[in-house]
Every structure is written in C-alpha cells, then in structure tokens.
C-alpha cells in the first residue's frame, strides 16, 4: 500500500523511538521536505543492494531526539522508508 508523507513520518518516528530508546513524544520532526534522490533506493542502499538508476521523488525527513539534540535523516517515498547513514549504514524500515 502506498505510503503518504504522514505515514512515512510515523514510521520514521516509530523506528527512531525504538532505535534510540526514546518516547515518540521526545522526537521532533525538524523538516519534511520534498526531495529528489538519485536512484530507486533513495540514495540509501543497503550493503550490496542494487538499484534502478532513475531520479526518484520522495521526502527527506529530518528528526531530532530532544534528549541529546542529535539529528537523523530518513528518506521516504510511497514505496519505502529508509534511514540514511545511521552509524555509517543505511537501513530500510
């Protein structure tokens, strides 16, 4: 089922909440901008992942945990949500 931007944000918040062990209410969505990514995996490939080479529209979501002020970038489109470069790796939710 195609994700809306709001649904993508919810998934990102839920993921970050679990990943950083913080309550969803302690996460701020700093920005949720339209973006264009260089490929079908939103420029956030998993290790060894291959991707179609098409400019892909989506959303760049920047979240911040209130306790430490750290920022995290999620990339999403109607088909997927990915965490970009978290501790050196990309993750697909």
């Amino acid at each position: 089922m195609a994700l809306t931007r709001e649904q993508a944000i919810e998934k990102a918040v839920a993921d970050l909440s679990k990943r950083r062990n913080v309550a969803p209410g302690d996460i701020t969505v700093l920005s949720q901008d339209d973006a264009q990514f260089p490929n079908g995996v939103l420029g956030a490939p998993l290790d060894g992942e291959i991707s179609m080479m098409m400019i892909t529209k989506g959303w760049r979501l920047v979240l911040q945990t209130k306790n430490d002020g750290e920022r995290f970038e999620y990339r999403a489109n109607p088909q997927q949500v990915r965490l970009f470069q978290y501790q050196g790796s990309n993750f697909k939710l």
């Binding site: 079908g40 995996v41 998993l46 992942e49 291959i50 179609m52 697909k92």
Partner: peptide, 14 residues
C-alpha cells in the same frame, strides 16, 4: 525482472 517494485534488487537475481 530482478528489481522489486520499490526499485531495489540483489546480485543473485541479476
């Protein structure tokens, strides 16, 4: 076909 609906794929399938 080896790329999925979201546009990613694996070496084995290629």
């Amino acid at each position: 076909k080896f790329l999925s609906g979201s546009g990613g794929g694996q070496l084995n399938d290629a």
